[in-house]
């Protein structure tokens, strides 16, 4: 979180985490398309030649003034592939809230769990844990065939009982609810700390 008292701006960092091809970039693309241009920055994507996220995607959401303050939310994705672990650590620096985007396909359960454990390891190195850090989980690709049941995904991935969403990111199903909830969770945590 960064507070600029001269401009009365308060800025937060929200990171979308999850295995490769789970739909993190698609979440940001939908949010970017849905928002009025006056409320957002450009969507920056740093991709490989195969259109996979190489480093990160970024956009900023800016809201109207609240109690004199202008809230800004910097939204990032991380590259999901296992071998980009250092990039993920860099993107996590200074994070205020997390969205874990899981792939609902039955065949991807192993990758989901590996990515979640990778996230927890990185948070622990930063002095945090998923047990207390503001985060939500999004079960994406619910429109595909051969998806895992929500009950099973909850049992395998949501071991701290955080808010969860059943999403279809390309058409926006639950994308904005996910965003609103993580923002609210971040503020709630700060309110409790304060």
């Amino acid at each position: 979180m960064f507070i600029n008292r001269a401009l009365q701006e308060i800025s937060f960092k929200i990171v979308y985490y999850g295995p490769g091809l789970s739909g993190k970039t698609t979440n940001l693309e939908y949010i970017h398309r849905h928002l009025a241009p006056s409320m957002r920055s450009d969507l920056v994507t740093l991709n490989t030649r195969e259109e996979r996220t190489l480093y990160f995607d970024f956009m900023q959401l800016e809201l109207g003034r609240i109690k004199g303050q202008k809230p800004r939310f910097n939204l990032y994705t991380v590259p999901g592939q296992v071998y980009y672990r250092f990039s993920r650590k860099i993107i996590l620096k200074g994070v205020d809230g997390l969205v874990f985007v899981a792939d609902s396909q039955r065949s991807r359960m192993g990758e989901n769990l590996d990515s979640l454990l990778d996230l927890e390891r990185n948070l622990i190195e930063m002095g945090f844990s998923l047990e207390t850090f503001p985060w939500v989980i999004q079960y994406n690709k619910r429109d595909l065939r051969d998806v895992e049941t929500i009950e099973t995904m909850q049992a395998k991935l949501n071991f701290f009982g955080t808010a969860h969403f059943e999403a279809v990111a390309p058409n926006g199903t639950e994308v904005l609810s996910t965003l609103k909830t993580i923002i609210t969770n971040v503020i709630t945590k700060l309110e409790l700390v304060a």
């Binding site: 809201l63 609103k180 309110e191």
Partner: peptide, 16 residues
């Protein structure tokens, strides 16, 4: 505070 959170929620509903 709680007021900020409530106003933020309203602003998010409007913006999104």
């Amino acid at each position: 505070d709680a007021e900020f959170k409530n106003l933020l929620s309203e602003e998010l509903n409007r913006s999104l």
